[in-house]
Computed example of a mutant assay.
Amino acid sequence: MGQGSAGQERALVFGTTAEQYDAARPGYSALLVDTVLDYVGNASPRALEIGAGTGKATVAFAGRGLPVLAVEPDPRMAEVLRRNTTALPQVDVEVGLFEQWQRAERRFDLLYAAQAWHWLDPETRRDHTFDALVPGGTVALFWNFAPMVDPVLHREFTAIDADYGTELGRLTGLATEFEGEIEATEENGWPSVDFAGDPRFTDQRSVRVRNGRTRHDADAWLSRVATQSGVQILEPERRATLLAALRRVLDTHGAGLDTEWITDVFLARRLPEQTQA
């Protein structure tokens, strides 16, 4: 996470509400883990997790028996991460920015990042990823989305989001917009655009994992909204006004909402040694 300026500051804002983040954010489905591990093709890959946060993805992957080294830049998030992985002795936690992390001679079969790749320095993140992987090793980058089902709620939430500039697209998008395949553009920052011209990574794939529909009550959904970086960086009074406006809309429409649970994942493989020139 983090590039060392405004981007890094925003990336580290999650630590100010680490407990709320842990309680409100969703985890990662067995289907997502299956998708990644099927691609890896290794029975027990050694995994490196970048920007591990409070351990949502750490628990999902280490729960399959994988040894995981979790790198997290924020000590407050790392404290919760350690607590959440107490029952998983194969998890090691190191605190620090990926850009400054000391790899030494360690290399991994799998490097993954959950909701974190976009916080890394775009000038160096692929180089660090390449160096951290064994030849033929896998990079897996994924994000959860929770687009809403009701188009009326979508329209009203989108208007509020635009007024406040909070960039809540992952939570205020419309489910029907996610019915097709992943669209990769520079504007949406999908990693295939970043990796496309890099010959060190092959077998690149973009996969949309559909995990089903979820019903949220107003409190749970608003708690999740409050953990988004675009909301956390607002002044407290403006943040409270935003959340109150969203609650009024929810109260008008039955105090809850349905969303689809979607995880988009980018997969690529470091070129095997014998293929490199």
Rank of each mutant, 00 (worst) to 15 (best):
E49M: 01
D217I: 01
R106M: 01
S192K: 00
D127W: 07
P147V: 08
G254Y: 03
L12V: 06
D22A: 14
Q274N: 15
G197Y: 04
S229A: 12
V93H: 00
E179M: 08
A162T: 12
A226D: 15
D203H: 13
T263V: 15
Y164D: 10
E273V: 10
Y112S: 07
L250F: 10
E156R: 14
M148Q: 10
V33L: 08
D131K: 13
V33G: 09
H253C: 05
F98Q: 07
A6N: 10
T263N: 11
Q204R: 14
G27T: 11
V71N: 10
R125P: 08
A277F: 12
V134N: 01
F130T: 02
P191S: 08
T263I: 14
D127I: 11
D219W: 05
E237N: 11
L133M: 04
T185V: 04
G180A: 03
G65T: 03
D251P: 09
R25P: 10
G65P: 06
A18D: 01
R248A: 15
L222A: 07
A6P: 04
A218T: 09
L267E: 05
Q204N: 09
L250A: 05
T158R: 15
E9G: 03
L171D: 07
G51N: 06
M77V: 00
V225N: 08
R46L: 05
E79M: 04
R239P: 15
E187P: 02
V152I: 13
E123F: 08
H253E: 07
R238F: 09
V149T: 13
T176I: 11
P26F: 04
D217K: 00
P45H: 02
V93M: 00
E156N: 04
E99H: 07
T263D: 14
Y164I: 07
A245F: 09
V13D: 10
A60M: 14
V59I: 15
R224A: 08
P236M: 11
P236A: 14
T185Y: 10
G180C: 05
V40T: 03
T58D: 00
V225S: 08
D217V: 04
G15E: 01
Y39D: 04
G136R: 00
L246S: 15
F14W: 00
A70Q: 00
S229Y: 06
I182F: 05
I182A: 02
A218R: 12
L222E: 05
R213H: 11
T54R: 09
V36N: 06
V209H: 14
P236E: 13
G189S: 06
H118N: 03
L32Y: 13
Q102F: 02
L48P: 02
D22C: 07
W261F: 15
W261C: 13
V134I: 05
Q204I: 12
D258K: 02
D219G: 08
F108G: 02
G169M: 13
D109H: 01
R170T: 12
V95Y: 02
V80Y: 04
P67Y: 02
T85N: 00
S5Q: 13
F178R: 14
N42R: 15
S223R: 13
L234K: 15
L153E: 06
R103Y: 06
E72Q: 03
W261E: 14
T54E: 08
D150Q: 06
D34M: 01
G254D: 05
